[in-house]
Nucleic acid binder design. Structure first.
Lengths: 105, 105
DNA sequence: TTACATTTGACATTAATTGTCAAGTGTAAT
DNA sequence: ATTACACTTGACAATTAATGTCAAATGTAA
């Protein structure tokens, strides 16, 4: 498959690849290094603004990163739910239904 | 299709079908009628506990109602997101991947 | 051991959710 | 047309969850 890495792993890998320190990147994001550290280890979620800024700083594809990020938010909603998987499928059905009636994408 | 009604619509229809007033049901839920009114018109989200209690009060299938409810929560997360639909698909992929490696369901 | 990057956890701040209340609207008797 | 009652609306209060800071702890490489 393809979407196997977490957002945090992606961020950390790319940051290290570029030789940047937490301190450098967190300064640009205007947050404490502690938070970025936690984001990279999936102990905290980033905000959408942070994700967008991180994509810029680290030269990551914005759309991919956002998709990654949103999919984690979705899974977070249902992580303790026995019926989560079914709910996901229903959400997709509804999604199709909505976009069909509104046309587009 | 099948999942065309919102949770709120389901709740209101069933309540009226049973001839119950907002005041009756909201008393059992231990909340103000105003909130239940809003829940039924999809102006507010219910809590999971409220959903479970409503299923009991109104003799609705718990699993179906929960699935309905969770799917709305999921859609709420991505409602303003251009890439929401793609994120949903990725979430499903990840879900499969997870349940494959953990076995079950 | 000093230097520095990262991690950890206790706590503060802020934002979102959930709730109350009181006044407003609609409708159907009387 | 006034009373009665179900429901709705919006301003605001309370509670809970998310986001952040800070200082001390840990790891690692001079």
């Amino acid at each position: 498959m393809k979407n196997n890495k977490s957002t945090g792993e992606i961020l950390r890998e790319k940051r290290e690849e570029k030789g940047l320190l937490l301190r450098h990147v967190s300064a640009e994001l205007d947050i404490d290094t502690a938070i970025l550290s936690k984001i990279e280890r999936s102990e905290r979620k980033a905000t959408k603004e942070q994700i967008l800024k991180l994509a810029e700083i680290l030269n990551l594809d914005k759309d991919n990163l956002i998709i990654q990020y949103l999919s984690e938010k979705i899974l977070y909603e249902i992580k303790d739910e026995k019926l989560g998987s079914k709910a996901l499928k229903v959400a997709e059905q509804k999604m199709k239904y909505i976009s069909k009636n509104k046309s587009g994408n």
